[in-house]
Computed example of a mutant assay.
Amino acid sequence: MGSKASRAESPASPGAIFALIRGGAATTRREVARATGLAPSTASLRVEELIDAGWVSERTDGSMAGRPARRLAVNRDRGIASSISLGANHMSVDIADATGASIATRSIPYSAVDGPASALDFGCAQLAEIISESGSTAALLGVTLGLPTPIDATTGTATASIQAPGWDRLDILGELRSRVGGYALVENDANLLAVAALDTVPVPNPHLIAVKAGSRIGSGFVSGGVLHRGASGAGGEFSHTPTGAASVIACSCGNSGCLESVASGAAVVARLRALGADVTTVDEIVTLAGHGDAVIIELVRTAGSLVGEVLAQAVNFVNPHAVILGGAMSSIPDFVASVRAVLFQHCLPVVSSVLSIREIEDGSTAEGRGGIRLLLDAILSPDAIDADLTASRTAITHP
């Protein structure tokens, strides 16, 4: 016999009860008993175990008339979740409490070509510094590392790429754990953007495509609220699709005229330099476009149109609710407008009728938010909570 989706399996484990509390489906002991079908005394004992372990807090809610209720919530002070995201020319470091609420964030100029050992040392040092400056004394729960290359989620290994040289030869998770301890994840940066975009689409369990258009181009795909990585970590990636245009920068994919080699920020920089312009970074393109430079505006529009043409194939195939744009190029209105115009021109009416295209909110911290969300979903899963409580019981029984 099937059970209602709002009910946990009965008898519910402490981890399943924690999931109800974390999701807001049960915020009092009485609601826990009702949602699980457990006897109130049994439900209360399992809630107590979660409180004793530090995963749940219980506070009096004095906002309601009558007898104040005691509300259950994730204990925000249980630990710190963190994310380090490495781009082509920058690194961002973010920390949040156990509920995912941001504590601090910082972005630092940094080149991915400096190699993995240097990047990990620098990133972990920045993480330790930002935690110290926050004044928090909570333990570090774990870290997510975002990289500009496909990641095989089953092995935690990176694909060889120009954007992240040397990472494919590294035990990334092992290196992270040795530096910071706690739980470690590694994920493609565009996938982190896609996860961060989940909260920006006003429908439950949305379908979306996230496109990171910076020095390079990356993309991630979410279906039914679930990130899809594919068989080897390249799920949702369309930036190496041939366009028919001539490449202006080298790309590790080997395809002549692939989208990244003709329409990325690095490709626009290369076209400008060929015209004699003294431009070296995408940030300079953003600044000059903001000043209305006619040559740059035209090149940016062309790049946006090329992205829109290739993206339309993916949009027609998966029929998403939204296309979310991130990365430095997406901060240029003419780029976004060109992507939107071509996308709507090439999409089927039944597809475009439900489609929203926009730049992600707070783009500078989006990958960090996505990394922290993925990390907390792993650390705070029902199985993980149950395993933590089992380990605690074993330690008490066999000190």
Rank of each mutant, 00 (worst) to 15 (best):
A5D: 14
A8T: 14
E9D: 09
E9Q: 11
I17E: 09
F18R: 08
I21S: 04
R22S: 13
R34Y: 05
G37V: 03
G37K: 06
S41Y: 02
T42K: 07
S44G: 13
V47Q: 03
I51N: 00
G54W: 09
E58I: 13
D61N: 15
G66E: 04
A69F: 06
R71K: 14
L72Y: 02
I80C: 09
S82K: 01
L86E: 00
G87N: 05
G87Q: 07
M91Q: 08
M91V: 15
M91E: 01
D94S: 10
A96D: 11
A96E: 09
T99M: 11
A101G: 14
S102C: 01
I103Y: 05
S107G: 11
A112K: 05
G115C: 05
A117E: 15
S118K: 12
S118A: 15
I130D: 07
E133Y: 03
T137Y: 00
T137L: 10
L141C: 07
T144E: 09
L145W: 09
L145E: 05
G146V: 06
T149D: 02
T155W: 00
G156S: 11
D168N: 13
R169W: 00
L173C: 01
E175I: 00
S178E: 13
S178C: 07
S178V: 01
G182C: 06
G182L: 02
A190K: 06
N191R: 12
N191G: 10
D199R: 11
D199E: 15
V201I: 15
V201G: 07
L208M: 09
I209S: 08
A213Y: 02
S215F: 10
F221N: 07
F221V: 15
S223T: 11
L227N: 11
G236Q: 08
F238W: 11
S239M: 08
T241K: 02
G244K: 08
G244E: 06
A245K: 12
S247V: 04
S247H: 05
I249R: 14
C251M: 05
S256F: 02
E260P: 02
R273I: 08
D278M: 10
D283N: 12
D283R: 12
L288G: 00
L288H: 12
G290L: 08
G290S: 05
A303K: 14
V307E: 13
N319M: 02
A322E: 04
I324T: 14
A328F: 00
M329Q: 10
I332F: 07
D334R: 07
D334F: 03
L348N: 11
P349M: 09
V351M: 07
S353M: 06
V354P: 00
S356C: 02
E361W: 01
D362R: 13
T365D: 07
R369L: 12
G371E: 10
I372A: 04
L376W: 03
L380M: 12
D383H: 13
A384S: 14
L389R: 04
L389M: 03
A391L: 10
S392M: 08
A395T: 14
H398F: 11
P399V: 10
